[in-house]
Design a protein around this nucleic acid. Structure first.
Lengths: 283, 283
DNA sequence: AGGCGTCATACCTCTGCGGTATCGGGAGGG
DNA sequence: CCCTCCCGATACCGCAGAGGTATGACGCCT
C-alpha cells in the first residue's frame, strides 16, 4: 500500500463523497474512483458502499480510516524529523520543537525553557503554540518533537510521558456574576449554574461535544466569551496569572486535579530531547 | 514520501551496501541508486555518505531509519488489520490475533482464553506464539492485535497496557548443580555463579547483549541448554509448570518482580479487543 | 417520465520506474 | 607505481501505471 493510495482513501473516508474528495486532492474524479477500486482489489477488501448519494464506509473501511490515519501521520513524522535532522547552514537551527496549548502552563514553560537553556550543551528549542486539543496530532505527524499535555483533557496515549505537576481547577466567570464573589465553590455549585452556559472545546478527535454554549478553540476566545458573559469554564489554577480584569476565577475545591505532563514519541532517541525531559522532571 | 521509497531506503540503511540491498529487494542496483538519490533530492537532505566501500548513514539518515521503520510498520499494520476486518466467508475467522512468547504465562493465557470464550458475544481468538522479544514488533506491524508482555523484559512503550499479575523469579539450573539443592537464593548468590554462564536473549531492538553464554531465542532452546549444563537463567515462577525433570528451579527472593501485562495499539477500537482486555483485567 | 447528482468505464497521454550497458573513482595487491 | 577489482553513478530504453477528458449507468427527487 503506497502512501498516495492511503492519502486518497482518507480524503474519501472523510468526505464520504468521491467528487468532493477529488476536488480536495486537486485531481479529477475518475482517477480517484479508479485508485480506490485498485486499492480495494489489492487489499481484497470492500472499503466503500456506493450509494446513490455519496459513499459509506464498510467496517473494514472504518478500520483503514483509523489505522491509516495513524500510519500516514507516522510517515509525515518521519519526513519532517528527517528534514529537521539535516545539518544546518551554521546559524542556529531548532533541534527540538515543543508544542503546547497557547496560554496553558505559561509559567511552567518559561521555567522549563530557562532551565534547559542553562544546560551546558543545550540546543535551540522552537516553541509552537497551538489551539486546544491539537498537541497530540502535531506530535504524531512530526510537526513537533515534544509536547506539554494536560490530563484529563489530553490522554497521552501512544506516547512516552512524565508527569510534571498537578494543580486544582478554578471556575472562570464574568466579573459581576452572582457566584463571582464566593471564596470557593464545589462542583455541585458549578453544575447548578443556569445562566451563561459552559464553553465547549474540541476533544482529542477534533469534534465538539454536544450541548449548549459557544465553541472555542483557544484561550483568548474563551476569556473573551467569559468576559462578555456568554460562557463560563473551568481551568487549571495557573491561568490566574493570565486573567483579564473583567474575568474572575473562583477555586473549585473538589474538581478533578489537572496534571501537566511532558510527552514525546516513543521511538525518539535524540540527545537534545532526552536532556529536555530530564530538565523538566527535575524542575 | 511513498512507502516504496521508504522500503528501499530501509533496505540500504540495514545493508549499508546498495548492491546487496538491491538484491534483497529483488531489483537491479542502478534503479535503487537513483531512487535513493531522488529521495534525498525531494527531502533536501543527504542521507548517505558514499565511500569507496559501501555507504554510511548520516545523522539525518539514522533519523529516517528509526522513524521510517516505525512508519512502515504502521502502514503494514493498517494493511493487515484492514484485511482482517473484511467480512469472512461464513466460517469463523479470527477477529483478534493475540501474540505471546512461546512458553510464557501459559497458565494465565489458558485462563484468559477460557474466560473470554465464555463471554456472550466473544469472537475467535487466534493465538500466535513467537520467540523472545518479538511481540512488540508483531504488534507494531499488525501481525497481531494484542500481546502479553513481561516487564521489565518488554517495555510496552508506545502501546496501551494493563497489568495483569506480578510474580517473583526463580533461578533455573541443571539438576545436580551445587546450588540446585538450596531452598531459596539471593541475587548475590546468582551473581557469584562461575560455571555455567547465563544464557543471553535478544533485547527489544533485536540484538544480543555482550557477554559469555549461549544465545537463545525461545524457551525450548533455553531449557535444553540449561539441562545440558551449558547455561543458567532466571525466569518468572510460573514456568515451574513447564519444567523438564532435568532442570531445577530455585526461587530468588530479591530478584526484580516480573509483571505480565496485556498490550494493544492505542488507536484500536474493536469491540472484540475491548472485551478481551476487560476479561483479562477481571481475571 | 425527465432531470440531476454521483460513481464507473473507455480511451488517450505522458510521467516515471525499472532494466541493461557502461563509466568513474577509490582501495588494495603485486 | 600501476593494475585490477569493487561499488556506486550515469546513459539510454521500454513499459506500466497515473491522471485527464468524455461519456455511460444508475438511483433519487420532482
Amino acid at each position: 500500500m503506497e502512501t498516495r493510495e492511503l492519502r486518497y482513501f482518507l480524503a474519501v473516508a472523510e468526505e464520504l463523497h468521491i467528487g468532493r474528495a477529488a476536488q480536495r486532492l486537486g485531481m479529477a474524479q475518475p482517477p480517484l474512483s479508479r485508485a480506490i477500486q485498485r486499492l480495494e482489489r489489492r487489499l481484497g477488501v470492500t472499503l466503500l458502499e456506493r450509494t446513490g448519494r455519496g459513499v459509506q464506509l464498510t467496517d473494514a473501511g472504518a478500520v483503514l480510516r483509523d489505522e491509516g490515519r495513524a500510519a500516514l501521520d507516522a510517515v509525515h513524522a518521519a519526513e519532517r524529523r528527517t528534514r529537521r535532522a539535516a545539518p544546518a547552514p551554521v546559524t542556529s537551527r531548532p533541534a527540538v520543537v515543543l508544542v503546547t496549548k497557547a496560554g496553558a502552563s505559561s509559567e511552567l514553560l518559561a521555567k522549563l525553557l530557562e532551565a534547559y537553556a542553562a544546560e551546558p550543551d543545550s540546543a535551540e528549542v522552537e516553541v509552537l503554540l497551538c489551539g486546544i486539543g491539537e498537541q497530540e496530532s502535531m506530535l504524531r505527524d512530526g510537526q513537533a518533537d515534544v509536547a506539554l499535555l494536560h490530563r484529563p483533557f489530553d490522554s497521552g496515549v501512544g506516547f512516552d510521558t512524565e508527569d510534571l505537576r498537578s494543580e486544582g481547577q478554578m471556575l472562570l466567570l464574568p466579573a459581576g456574576h452572582p457566584l463571582s464573589s464566593c471564596e470557593s465553590l464545589r462542583t455541585a455549585d458549578v453544575d447548578a449554574i443556569a445562566d451563561p452556559p459552559p464553553a465547549r472545546w474540541p476533544t482529542a478527535v477534533g469534534h465538539y461535544p454536544e450541548g449548549p454554549g459557544p465553541q472555542v478553540r483557544d484561550l483568548t476566545q474563551l476569556l473573551q466569551l467569559v468576559a462578555l458573559g456568554r460562557a463560563w469554564t473551568m481551568l487549571p489554577e495557573s491561568v490566574r496569572a493570565d486573567l483579564r480584569s473583567d474575568v474572575v476565577g473562583v477555586p473549585v475545591v473538589d474538581a478533578p486535579t489537572v496534571t501537566t505532563m511532558i510527552a514525546w514519541p516513543p521511538q525518539s532517541r535524540s540527545r537534545a530531547l532526552a536532556a529536555l525531559v530530564r530538565v523538566a522532571t527535575a524542575l
